[in-house]
Design a binder for these strands. Structure first.
Lengths: 126, 126
DNA sequence: GACAAAATACGATTAATTTCGTATCTTGTC
DNA sequence: GACAAGATACGAAATTAATCGTATTTTGTC
């Protein structure tokens, strides 16, 4: 089936690069590679190729005015997170947000996290 | 990198079949296919093959004592949901459960869901 | 303007996933 | 025990994802 462009889900490798771009802001291939390769052993041209593919998919935008192209995430981290979690809720939680939240919280969740969540709920109008 | 068997993440097609098995309990290929094909156009042997692959990966167990093998999910729905959500929290939310919960709840979340989540938080010991 | 450094483009390979056609096996019925 | 129905096994094609080597292009410096 053809994919809906607006809700295109990044692959794992793509998400890794998006995380770098969200953190650093617009960056060249070299800058992205420097960050990524500090954690994983990934070749420079691999990062380049994935960014090029992401550009075709419009997951990133590209400024070509300089020799080293500058890439930036096309969608905000928030938008992407929302899309990913909606997808998971649909496919693994029968569409129930509350079931997902129940599973998300477990013994390893810190008191701070729990309190943050409580505050969030308090701030809701509903 | 080699994959850790215990936290093996089902693919999308595999998750679809697991959802059926969790709902129906142990079932034959035919039974699973009947359910799946009511929603999607998927061939019988495709379902068979995926279940066989899942068996190799130990995502399902198989009772071969009858001619039509009976498949069952190897892990509970709860375990799998927990594993999927942990994975997403790590890869898309920088490890923060509260950030994930913030994104999970949006305008489309019903009052009932919100109240369920409130009750969950109230029932926590923390 | 030649050279070197450093960038992109391109193509090919490998691996994983999904799909399904065909072959084969099993078993109840006559 | 032959047949047919219906099951599994097997192999291969099609797709998507991930990787990287090599070729080519760009540009600052001498």
């Amino acid at each position: 089936m053809a994919h809906d462009k607006s809700t295109l889900k990044p692959t794992e490798a793509e998400l890794t690069l998006l995380n770098v771009l969200w953190k650093m802001g617009p960056a060249t291939v070299r800058q992205v590679h420097d960050v990524v390769s500090s954690t994983q052993k990934t070749g420079y041209t691999t990062v380049l190729k994935i960014l090029q593919i992401m550009h075709e998919k419009t997951l990133v935008i590209r400024d070509e005015s300089n020799r080293a192209h500058v890439y930036a995430a096309a969608n905000s981290q928030t938008q992407t997170q929302t899309s990913l979690i909606r997808d998971l809720i649909t496919k693994a939680f029968g569409g129930s947000t509350s079931k997902l939240v129940m599973r998300a919280i477990d013994d390893s969740t810190s008191t701070e996290e729990i309190n943050d969540i409580r505050q969030l709920l308090n701030s809701l109008e509903k």
